[in-house]
């Protein structure tokens, strides 16, 4: 069996890539994609900890399923907001949305 640490490293790498994407990308959609990677990294953690831990308690599985649902809701709201921004401003580049500063 693959040791647990492999999964943890995978999820840490995924999380870091996602975080980098959120911080470095300018396009709003790409930022949301980065957030999705971070959420999925947490999901990998949850499911692998559950599998290698006490299987009788379903906490990890339930947690992961709830994260799916929440992530879907968050993306739905995010895309709706991005659409409304695009309609009024014709851009979704985060740097150009600077009506308010300081």
């Amino acid at each position: 069996m693959v040791p647990l640490s492999w999964y943890i490293f995978l999820s840490a790498a995924l999380f870091s890539i996602g975080l980098y994407g959120v911080l470095a990308r300018k396009n709003a959609i790409a930022i949301l994609l980065g957030v999705e990677l971070m959420l999925n990294a947490a999901n990998i953690n949850l499911v692998s900890f559950w599998r290698y831990g006490n299987n009788a308690l379903m906490g990890g599985q339930v947690f992961a399923i709830i994260v799916f649902a929440v992530a879907a809701a968050e993306v739905a709201v995010g895309l709706a907001l991005i659409l409304s921004i695009y309609r009024s401003r014709n851009t979704i580049v985060a740097d150009e949305l600077d009506l308010m500063k300081w």
Partner: peptide, 26 residues
């Protein structure tokens, strides 16, 4: 709309970081 957008991006990012922390706690 810009306010909602900025709130969402920051919120989504920090809640993902929080979730990663919670997954490690679990």
């Amino acid at each position: 709309t810009e306010a909602g957008f900025k709130y969402l991006l920051f919120g989504a990012m920090t809640s993902a970081i929080l979730l990663y922390g919670l997954s490690l706690v679990y």
